[in-house]
Simulated scan of single mutants.
Amino acid sequence: MNLVEAFRWIADPGNWGGTSGIAARIVEHLWVTFLSLLAAAAVALPVGVLIGHTGRGAGVIGAFTGAFRAIPTLGLLTLFGLLLGIGLAAPMLALVILAIPSLLAGAYSGIHSVDPTIAGAARAIGMSPAQVITRVELPLALPVLIGGIRAATLQIVATATLAAYTADYGLGRYLFAGLKTRDYPQMIGGAIIVIALALILELLLAAVQRTIDQRVTRPSTREKLGSRHG
């Protein structure tokens, strides 16, 4: 019965308008997701690409990502909330830490999976290390790298509901407010919207990854390098 009432709550036009309406909460949720992903990518992607290119520190990747994934996000958020107080700073920091392992692993795996002979051919025709990374390795590694971004995005979207733990922000407000007031249709409705949002992003990113993978597997890059090297 609560499930039917939850869909009625979602379908009610009165719940969509205003600064606390569903539309505004979705925008807030996506904004938190985007900012957290951007901050995590700024840290993890350069490190992952550099380790994948040089091979130095590769043994630490597995241990590092495993250790970070083992950290309970709610516990981390509680700790940051006590240190930083009420607001978005605590959940944003927790979400950034949550996203780093997937982004780091995706960047490293993508660069590491590139055939060494292709990178060798690029160096043989006079490319600098930076050019080898940006013009050869990154384009070929892009499908795996996008896979890491895809995994991190889904983790953030699902966990960003915790932003409402310390701030009146995002779709998580419906879950916390519904639980506190025993308004279960609101709580279940908020959860359904988060699930729908995650599924939509998953489908979009999967389509992007598939398109890029099809382009990368075309022989253009390999043939160009091979013809130049020959």
Rank of each mutant, 00 (worst) to 15 (best):
M1K: 14
M1V: 08
M1R: 06
N2L: 14
V4K: 15
V4M: 12
W9G: 06
A11V: 12
A11N: 11
D12M: 08
G14L: 10
G17Y: 06
T19A: 12
G21A: 11
A24F: 04
R25S: 11
L30Y: 08
V32G: 00
V32N: 03
V32T: 08
V32S: 01
T33K: 04
S36A: 15
A42K: 04
A44P: 00
V47A: 12
G52A: 04
H53D: 08
T54Q: 08
T54G: 05
R56L: 10
R56M: 02
R56D: 03
A58C: 05
G59T: 09
G59L: 05
V60N: 07
I61Q: 00
A63L: 11
F64M: 13
F64G: 03
T65F: 12
A67C: 07
R69T: 03
A70M: 12
I71A: 01
P72D: 03
L74S: 13
L74A: 14
L76F: 00
F80C: 07
F80I: 05
G81M: 03
G81T: 01
L82S: 10
L82M: 14
I86P: 03
M92H: 08
V96E: 00
I97A: 06
I100V: 15
P101D: 01
S102D: 10
L103M: 11
L103A: 06
L104Q: 05
A105V: 11
A105H: 03
H112P: 00
S113D: 15
S113T: 11
S113V: 09
S113L: 07
V114I: 14
P116E: 13
P116T: 09
I118G: 01
I118W: 09
A119F: 05
G120I: 06
A121W: 04
A121S: 10
G126D: 09
M127L: 15
S128E: 09
I133D: 01
I133P: 00
R135E: 11
E137T: 07
E137M: 15
L138K: 03
P139R: 11
A141K: 03
A141C: 12
A141S: 12
A141L: 06
I146N: 01
I149W: 13
A152S: 07
T153F: 06
I156Y: 04
I156E: 03
A160K: 09
T161E: 06
L162M: 14
A163D: 09
Y165G: 07
T166S: 10
A167K: 00
R173W: 11
Y174P: 02
F176S: 13
F176D: 01
G178I: 05
K180D: 15
Y184M: 15
G189M: 05
I192M: 08
V194S: 01
A196L: 15
A198C: 10
I200N: 02
L201Q: 08
E202S: 12
A206T: 14
Q209A: 15
Q209S: 13
I212Y: 02
I212N: 02
I212R: 09
R218A: 12
R218I: 05
P219W: 06
T221A: 14
E223A: 15
K224V: 13
L225H: 03
L225M: 08
G226M: 08
S227H: 04
S227Y: 11
R228Q: 10
G230L: 11
